[in-house]
Computed example of a mutant assay.
Amino acid sequence: MSVSGICEICGTRDVHHTCSRCAQLVCSEDFDEETGLCVECLAQVGGGGKERQRSPENMPDGVDTYRF
């Protein structure tokens, strides 16, 4: 199936995928190939995709890591 348009998550890139859970049209950056889910659905179901893998360089300001 061919899809065309703008990513429904970021609104800036061309779409290449459709989320198998919510059917949003998303770009490659906002899609997890392994699960077939967009990053929003992946975060909701607790998957370990792009959204969950954050390095210190791409964390927002004011976010610290606490170890107990």
Rank of each mutant, 00 (worst) to 15 (best):
V39N: 05
E34N: 03
R21E: 14
G46I: 01
E33M: 00
Q24C: 09
L25F: 05
G47Y: 01
G48Y: 02
A43W: 01
Y66F: 12
T65A: 08
G46F: 09
D32A: 14
P56D: 00
C7S: 02
H17Q: 06
I6M: 10
P56W: 06
S4I: 08
R67K: 10
C41Y: 01
D30K: 11
R67Y: 03
C27G: 05
E29Y: 04
G62C: 04
G62I: 12
M59S: 14
V26K: 07
C19M: 10
E40L: 08
T65L: 07
Y66S: 11
E33G: 04
V45P: 04
S2G: 11
G46P: 14
G47P: 02
M1W: 06
E51Q: 08
Q44T: 00
R21P: 02
M1I: 06
I6K: 14
G62K: 04
F68E: 15
Q53W: 02
E33P: 02
C38H: 04
I9G: 15
S28C: 08
G62A: 05
Q53M: 10
R21F: 06
V26M: 05
G5W: 09
N58Q: 15
C7N: 04
I6F: 15
C41W: 00
P56N: 00
G49Q: 01
Q53S: 03
E34C: 00
